[in-house]
Design a binder for these strands. Sequence first.
DNA 1: ATTTCTGCAAATCATTTGCAAGTAT
DNA 2: ATACTTGCAAATGATTTGCAGAAAT
Lengths: 136, 136
Amino acid sequence: MSDLLERLRERGWRMTSQRRVVAEVLDGDHVHLTADEVHARAAQRLPEISRATVYNALGELVSLGEVTEVSTDGRARRYDPNAHLPHHHLVCSRCGTIRDVHPAADPLADLPEEERFGFTVSEAEVTYRGLCPSCA
Amino acid sequence: MSDLLERLRERGWRMTSQRRVVAEVLDGDHVHLTADEVHARAAQRLPEISRATVYNALGELVSLGEVTEVSTDGRARRYDPNAHLPHHHLVCSRCGTIRDVHPAADPLADLPEEERFGFTVSEAEVTYRGLCPSCA
DNA sequence: ATTTCTGCAAATCATTTGCAAGTAT
DNA sequence: ATACTTGCAAATGATTTGCAGAAAT
């Protein structure tokens, strides 16, 4: 939905069929997939695609700032395609699913100077935990 | 400081020399260690202690709710011994140091019903990112 | 005595890397 | 043509597991 592909092309990202499929799988998704899930979905369209290639592409998208890595307590990192929109995460404690949620207030404002210990704080992210509808 | 050992004994946690050392390493520390760091410190006092045993003990402390697992973007989880006090984390984007900070407001209150997507939300944790005094 | 730990080594899971062959520019 | 990508398989890092012997209750 957010035309990730077009942005990538404009930025001169070398396009190959596997890179396109990875970008397509991520684009506009509101749930956040693990590298393995991205690989599985990509492989539906392009059966020969290898896991290493998916990891490469994801790593580049992260460096480009088009995608963000989210690591909640589980083991596998998840990839968040909505890097440009400020938002927080809702995580299911049982199955690990992550959804984006939108802030009602800026948590940065809630950290008083004396609780900053000399840090130059530039961003705050909130992780809400609970059970998703299917796990509850 | 926080008498983790005493609490564990009261709760009937079977005590062995290795479990004691793990608890001692964690107790009252304000920095949050990885499993491997815990193992290294424990091994200074008890050279034969194995990594698997450290993982076992950490896992049990987490299940008991005495310790919390924190995973900030790196790949190794860190263990936070201050599970009983509500607090958030201040992470240095350069060196990875984590400090505890105390909330000025409860972020749970800032997530409106229509942004919960059917989840039963039970907790919220905030990660503040920036540069620590030494890295700035 | 019984139940629960410990250490070891091997197993597993997530991710990375080296390199020859393939492909976009 | 050239430089960058891919796929494979093997390497790595983090964590888990199976099991026989050791230790706590």
